[in-house]
Amino acid sequence: MNGFAYVLKGFGLMWRPGIRRFTLIPLAINSLLFAAGTWAALHYAHQWLDHLLPGWLTFLNWLILPILFIGLMIVAFFTFTLVANFIAAPFNALLAQKLETQLTGRAPPEDTTPLWVMVVKTLAAETRKLLYFALRAIPLLILFLIPVLNLAAPFLWFAFSAWMMSLQYLDAPAGNHQVEFGEQRRLLRAMPVTSFGFGAAMTGMTLVPVLNFLALPVGVCAATLMWVEQGNAALTTRAIKTEQ
């Protein structure tokens, strides 16, 4: 339950004095994209489902349609989460930095990189994550188009989404410590249950109206707390083992 607990604590962290103002831009970006995503998903869902369901399975509509609908919502909202994180990446890093400073009493290592270079590096890192996501998402999306097999697609996508959510949000605090994407993946694999719990909670949050508007700042705050309590320790332990 640790992963779920971090998300619950993220709600309180985002409203702390000294932190609230750094949540405004990520919150605004996320709200706009999720509002557009909700409208598009609800407006076109029926048409998508008609194409995904073959005629000879119509007698099972009562069972299959809800499963496919939930799967499509997960895909749609997760995609909008990726886009929101891509746009808000520099602001997420700033939010994570301010929160970590408040939680630990010390700031992450100072980066003297010029602001414009930092923005370019951040966006480049987000692009690498999008490519990582696309190469793995395409086979899962193809499953949605295969009759019968598409019943398993929503469950597989949920598990994949949970993993990607953990990667997506951990990047803000870990990136402030110049931890690269590959090392972030290794850190999350070292604590699989917590990582999956965190990602599953964030995926579920994107499916709940109103709460999904808050997902971006809550996720960054929760991931920052997780980094402070577990990520730094795991990184230190790995460094010690490497030296030995």
Results as ranks from 00 to 15, higher is better:
F4E: 08
F77N: 00
L156Y: 12
Q102P: 00
I87R: 07
C221F: 11
L141T: 12
A162L: 10
N2A: 14
P26W: 03
T23H: 06
L187G: 00
L99V: 15
L52F: 13
L187Y: 01
S195I: 11
A84M: 12
L53I: 08
L130S: 09
L49R: 03
A201K: 12
Q47L: 12
E180Q: 07
L140Q: 13
P66N: 15
T194D: 11
V75N: 03
Q244W: 09
F144S: 02
F160R: 09
G37M: 04
K98A: 09
M226R: 06
A233Y: 07
F4C: 07
N176D: 07
E180Y: 11
V7S: 10
F34R: 05
F59N: 01
L214G: 07
A88R: 04
P147W: 04
L68W: 03
L131T: 14
Q168C: 10
E110S: 14
E243S: 13
A93K: 01
D111E: 01
G12C: 11
G10R: 12
N150F: 09
G37K: 02
P154D: 07
W48H: 06
G18L: 12
I240N: 04
F59Q: 02
L63A: 15
Y6K: 10
L143P: 08
V193I: 06
I70P: 04
M14V: 15
N61F: 00
L131M: 14
T81R: 04
L57H: 06
M164T: 12
E110G: 14
G199E: 10
Q47I: 13
K9I: 03
I67M: 08
M73W: 01
Y169D: 10
L214K: 06
L167V: 09
V179R: 05
V208K: 08
Q102I: 00
P154E: 03
T224S: 10
F4L: 13
H43F: 12
L8Q: 09
F213S: 03
E229G: 09
L72V: 12
R21Y: 03
N212W: 02
V218G: 09
T38L: 08
A76M: 15
G204C: 12
A5P: 05
P139W: 07
L27H: 02
P90N: 03
T203I: 00
F213A: 06
Y44Q: 13
M205I: 14
G12F: 13
K129L: 15
R106F: 04
T127K: 11
Y169H: 14
G37L: 00
T206E: 00
A5M: 13
N2Q: 14
L32S: 04
E183D: 13
N2E: 14
D171I: 07
V208D: 08
R185M: 10
A223P: 06
G37Y: 04
M73L: 00
L123N: 08
T122Q: 03
I64E: 05
L188Y: 04
E183F: 11
A134Q: 05
G204M: 11
A28R: 05
K9T: 06
I74K: 08
Q230A: 02
W62E: 03
I142D: 05
K121I: 01
A215Y: 06
A134C: 00
A76H: 14
M205S: 10
P108L: 12
T237Y: 06
L13A: 10
